[in-house]
Amino acid sequence: MGEERRGSRNSRTVVVEMFVIGTVASLAGIALGSAIEWFPAQASSQAGPIDTLWDVLVICSVPIFVGVVIVVVYAALLFRQRPGEENLDGPPIHGNTTIEIVWTVLPALLLVVLCVYAYVVLLDIEQKPAQAATPEMKIDVYGEQFAWTFKYAGANGKPFTTTQLYLPQDRSVKFDVHSKDVIHDFWVPAFRMKIDAVPGITTAYRVTPTKLGIYPVVCAELCGLGHAYMRQTARVLPTDAFDTWLEKESAEDNPPAGGKPVAGGATGATGGGGSDAAEGDAG
């Protein structure tokens, strides 16, 4: 019988071998996963916990994938039908209650742990920071086809709007997001946070920018013709530079209009003309 020959390799040896190869491959996979430059710059205090959550998920996932692949490959190598076995059947194993309970309970436990962890991260990234030196700033974000405008409360109670987002470093900012027409989605990949701009309701999230620089602002929800070109920039300034800018803007008695032409500011402000705005400063 082929059964004897099939069983000739000590099954314990095989399992040990698979386990060793699986461990090595998992470590290699995790190393590869860590080597890949997954995320854009970490420019907010929300980015860190989210990126760490990703790392944990990758570390949990790789061994599962590797395990399945190894079983499939080993099954193909060990148990493939060889010449002369065309009429051979396998052993009539119908199941095994113990092992079925194990592979029901273990993944469930892992998933519950991951959910709890993700919930903790969620609370962390959404909560208002504890009393800081400066109070939280509020900016109203308006999405329309196909541009964003930002309304600041301004210094001395003189509100103004711009099309380039300026943010102070290390100060929590709450965005109240509105839409003037269809659904958009306000996303700064470097901050990791996003939310839809929905006609009729105000949505919100908060970030604390931590890193100076210029970052793309992207519309992430399909909003029509010019969706791909609805890109602007966010600029994180040191606190004093930001305060200077804020006072200057409030002092200027200009009506809400386009932003200052700083560092490839807003492109193709309003009025559709999507493809004209294709300079793509979202690099």
């Binding site: 994938f65 993700a118 929800e221």
Partner: peptide, 20 residues
Amino acid sequence: LGGISGVMLAMIPLTIHVSD
């Protein structure tokens, strides 16, 4: 693989970044 990325997408904080 599709199932694993599905579980990742269940995790709200990650989905906030990668949705759409």
